[in-house]
């Protein structure tokens, strides 16, 4: 098998490639933040009676909250801020499909490239 000689990349090309990568990184990391996609579904289940008992805190817990500088009123929003887990099947299926598809693509394309590498490396000798 003949040896593959890669083209030399020009300076401008190198700079451009770096720019592509940087932009991609920022878009990938920043866009979800901007679109507000990040963060789980948490919401406050408000209670009317704001006492330690109503918030489900026993005397030991209550004394610790007080030591930390909280009253039942200020602790209410922390304690009652709960997750509401539910399985959103369409999203789960999309996620699974995206992940599996991604990994399959990775391994297949890698394998194709890998065979070239092995051929060139071991046929030279």
């Amino acid at each position: 098998m003949s040896r593959y000689t890669p083209p030399e990349q020009s300076k401008a090309g190198q700079v451009f490639d770096i720019a592509v990568v940087v932009v991609a990184i920022f878009v990938a990391l920043w866009l979800p933040l901007k679109l507000g996609l990040a963060g789980a579904a948490k919401s406050i289940d408000a209670l009317d009676a704001k006492t330690w008992e109503a918030l489900g805190q026993n005397p030991t817990m209550a004394s610790i909250w007080e030591k930390l500088g909280y009253t039942p009123e200020t602790a209410h929003d922390i304690i009652q801020n709960r997750f509401h887990y539910f399985i959103d099947w369409p999203t789960l299926i999309i996620m699974a499909a995206v992940l599996i598809g991604y990994f399959i693509f990775l391994f297949r394309a890698s394998d194709r490239e890998y065979r070239d590498v092995i051929n060139e490396k071991f046929d030279d000798k």
Binding site: P32, A38, A40, T91, I94
Partner: peptide
């Protein structure tokens, strides 16, 4: 997925 599903997809 339970917490950050859409972020994972992104």
């Amino acid at each position: 997925f339970l917490g950050f599903g859409s972020q994972l997809i992104a």
